[in-house]
């Protein structure tokens, strides 16, 4: 059978399934809550975004410098420690991190943001270190040889050439963050998870979908936005095939 046709048919089926889901859920009035309680929805949405933005921002401004630091020759020894901690930390489930933050800091917005921050540090740190380390040593040698200072090597060679993995790390972190923030309800952090968990407890499809669909769209949107930013930030000279992916 024609391969293109198979592919097309499968796409069509998936598209139809998604569309019929939306048609069905709309018809059943499951999104009415977003309109009826618009104020509450916007409050939770903003709370959600606030949590994600704050924790991601903190993670980025800490993890990238940290990654830069441990790739300096002086700190070579720390690198092993940091990478292994990051790898181990990523094995720990997000729910566990959230729960641990709560038992330590109590409930509320702060422990939620702290847990999200901690959890997003890891992929960014790991990708920053891996990205910088994967740069061809010849490049650094050439840069040194024509008289770049260490700061210029970092800014003009290392960071631009590691931009793709670093951005991929940020993307992974933010997307995971949006999902984990939906669990913040459990530690009293608020966000759209409030509605999802209410929906689960009350078996109420309106709460479920009015919470779950916006969270999903938020994650997909963030993913797309960061991919677009990648295209702008990462130099055209770096073919994605040559870059390390997450």
């Amino acid at each position: 059978m024609n391969k293109r046709l198979v592919s097309f048919v499968i796409k069509l089926i998936l598209f139809t399934l998604v569309m019929s889901f939306f048609a069905w859920s709309f018809k059943s009035g499951y999104y009415q809550l977003i309109i009826d309680d618009a104020e509450g929805f916007i409050f939770l949405l903003i709370q959600h975004i606030h949590m994600v933005a704050l924790s991601s921002f903190l993670a980025i401004v800490l993890a990238i410098p940290m990654g830069i630091l441990v790739t300096r020759p002086k700190f070579q020894k720390l690198q092993w420690l940091f990478m292994n901690t990051a790898n181990l930390g990523q094995t720990i489930p997000s729910l566990a991190i959230l729960a641990l933050a709560m038992t330590w800091m109590g409930i509320g917005f702060k422990p939620a943001v702290f847990a999200l921050f901690l959890y997003s540090l890891l992929p960014i740190l790991r990708n920053t270190v891996a990205g910088i380390k994967s740069i061809d040593p010849d490049l650094l040698d050439a840069a040194k040889g024509i008289g770049y200072t260490p700061a210029q090597i970092l800014l003009k060679i290392e960071l631009p050439n590691a931009a793709y993995p670093i951005m991929a790390g940020i993307r992974t972190a933010v997307v995971i963050n949006i999902g984990t923030a939906a669990l913040a309800y459990l530690v009293g952090g608020g966000g759209l998870g409030d509605w999802i968990f209410t929906g689960i407890m009350m078996r109420d499809n309106s709460y479920l979908l009015s919470g779950a669909i916006p969270v999903t769209l938020l994650a997909l949107l963030a993913d797309q936005l960061i991919r677009a930013a990648e295209k702008l930030i990462v130099s055209k000279g770096l073919r994605p095939s040559a870059a390390v992916s997450d």
């Binding site: 010849d138 040698d141 050439a142 840069a143 040889g145 024509i146 008289g147 060679i157 130099s235 770096l238």
Partner: peptide, 22 residues
């Protein structure tokens, strides 16, 4: 050292061109 290197041209085997630059 930096001054010295800027006054000496340096070419290496695999040319070491910077892939991120035009």
């Amino acid at each position: 050292q930096i001054e010295l290197r800027r006054n000496i041209g340096y070419v290496i085997q695999h040319n070491g061109l910077f892939p991120n630059m035009t």
